[in-house]
Amino acid sequence: MTQTPVEPLLAQMAGDLSALLERRGVEDPAMVGIHTGGVWVARELHRSLGLEQPLGSLDITFYRDDFTRIGLHPQVKPSDIPFSVDERHIILVDDVLHTGRTIRAAMNEIFDYGRPASVILAVLVERGGRELPIEADVVGTRLQLVLGEHVKLTGPDPLVLEVHKAA
C-alpha cells in the first residue's frame, strides 16, 4: 500500500476551482459532495474557497444503476441540499472518478432538486476505466492503476489517499 498526502492536492484543487470560477464569471456557487469521500473533500474545498452557501451532500444509493445488485439493505445516508438548485452554479465533488456511474447518479439526483445553471465536477483522483463519457473540470491527481489495484480515501481526520496493490 502506498499513501499520498492529500493537503497539496486539495490546495491545488482550490486554486484551480477559484481560477475556473473567475474565468467563467461564476458568482456565489454552491458545493455538493457525494457521500462519503466526496463530502470529506468538499468540506475542505468549501472551507478553502470561503463559499457563502452551506455545503450540500448527496447519497446516490437509490440513483445507482446497479442498485438491485447491491441488495435490499444498503447503507443509505440522507441527502442534504440546503439551498435552491434552480439556476445556481453547482460544484459537484467526489473523491474518485472511475467509471463515471457515480457522477451520473449524482447528477440525476441534483436534477431532481431543480435545474442548475451549470455543474462543475471536481474530483480528488481521476483514474482509468471510464464507462460513461464524463470528464472532471478540476482534478487533484491522475493515477494509472494496474489490474487489481484500487484507490481509497480514508478519513475524515486526517484525509489519506491510499493505493492498494493486488494480492
Rank of each mutant, 00 (worst) to 15 (best):
A136D: 03
V123D: 05
A136Y: 04
D16Q: 14
H89S: 13
V138M: 12
V39D: 05
L58T: 01
M31E: 04
T68W: 13
R69M: 02
L132K: 14
V123L: 11
A42C: 05
D65T: 12
M1H: 01
S118F: 09
E109D: 08
V146R: 15
V85N: 15
M31I: 02
G50W: 02
Q12P: 06
R47Q: 11
T61R: 12
Q12V: 07
G38Q: 02
G100L: 12
I91S: 03
P5G: 12
P5W: 09
A166W: 08
R47D: 12
L143I: 09
T4Q: 04
T102G: 07
I134L: 15
L121H: 03
R115V: 11
E22L: 14
T61W: 15
R23E: 08
E149R: 01
T141P: 11
G100R: 06
T61Q: 13
A42H: 01
L58S: 03
V139Y: 01
D112M: 12
G71W: 01
R24T: 08
P133F: 05
G114I: 02
R69P: 00
R47F: 09
D59A: 06
H73Q: 13
D16K: 11
T102K: 08
L10R: 04
P54E: 06
A122H: 07
V139D: 00
G100I: 05
L143H: 14
M1Y: 14
P133H: 05
D28N: 15
L20M: 09
L49D: 03
L97K: 02
R23W: 06
V146T: 13
I103C: 08
V160T: 11
F67I: 14
V39R: 02
L72E: 07
D112H: 11
D94W: 04
A122N: 00
H164I: 14
L51W: 04
S118H: 12
L10G: 00
R69Y: 00
F62H: 13
E135W: 09
G155L: 10
G114N: 08
L21T: 04
L72D: 05
D66E: 02
P82L: 00
Q3F: 14
P158V: 12
I110D: 10
I81A: 07
P29V: 01
L10F: 08
V119T: 04
I103Q: 03
R101Q: 10
L153S: 08
P82V: 00
R64T: 07
T61P: 03
G25R: 08
W40E: 01
V125Q: 14
R69S: 00
R43F: 15
W40S: 06
G71Q: 03
E149T: 06
G25K: 06
G33R: 08
E52I: 03
P116T: 00
T141I: 11
R47A: 02
P5T: 13
A19Q: 05
L132F: 15
R127W: 03
E135L: 09
D59V: 01
Y63S: 08
E27P: 11
R69W: 02
S48K: 14
I103D: 10
L72P: 05
L147V: 10
A30K: 01
V125E: 08
T102Q: 09
